[in-house]
């Protein structure tokens, strides 16, 4: 067993975990945030994507102890109060979700993608970048549209701020 502490969505959390405890289990069971999902156990589906120190990570493939002392953002921490993150808003606006199970991981992966590419996201790049996130409901069509729209919007917001 190991004692760990980390920041999750801006709040400090501590816990005692088995060495084999995965970050996703720590988030779901110890911290009680169930928006991060487990879909495949083999690091393929991406339902478990969170950000660790600002970088997208599959939380089913990282030990909780590896996140000790680091800053984790989950889907629950993405919006600012009632203000949805532009990627969240775009998923709703473009019907980028159906059952909602893959959605938290999709959104967290998309935010990371937009952080890396900015507005330079064309359809082919988005589709290629989504290889680590599986959706069974949408056929990806509207997810791609949502990410592209959010990327454009965020680029516009950035320019406006400059």
């Amino acid at each position: 067993m190991a004692s760990i502490s980390m920041t999750v969505n801006g709040k400090s959390v501590t816990g005692t975990v088995e060495d084999r405890t995965l970050l996703v289990n720590f988030i779901r069971e110890n911290v009680g945030l169930t928006g991060t999902h487990v879909g495949c156990d083999t690091s393929q589906c991406g339902a478990c994507v969170v950000h660790v120190d600002g970088i997208a990570v599959k939380s089913c493939t990282m030990l909780a102890v590896q996140a000790d002392g680091r800053s984790v953002t989950t889907i629950e921490g993405l919006a600012s109060g009632d203000q949805l993150h532009p990627v969240q808003a775009a998923f709703r606006e473009h019907h980028g979700l159906q059952c909602g199970f893959c959605t938290p991981g999709m959104i967290m992966a998309a935010v990371d993608m937009i952080n890396r590419y900015g507005a330079n996201l064309d359809e082919a790049t988005i589709r290629h970048e989504l290889e680590g996130n599986i959706c069974r409901c949408t056929g990806y069509h509207n997810i791609v549209k949502a990410i592209q729209a959010a990327a454009n919007e965020m680029a516009g917001l950035t320019q406006a701020a400059e």
């Binding site: 928006g35 993405l78 938290p104």
Partner: peptide
């Protein structure tokens, strides 16, 4: 959608 995009969906395993 609001609950799903904010991680507030409630599935059986939750």
């Amino acid at each position: 959608d609001k609950r799903f995009i904010t991680g507030k969906g409630r599935y059986t395993d939750d």
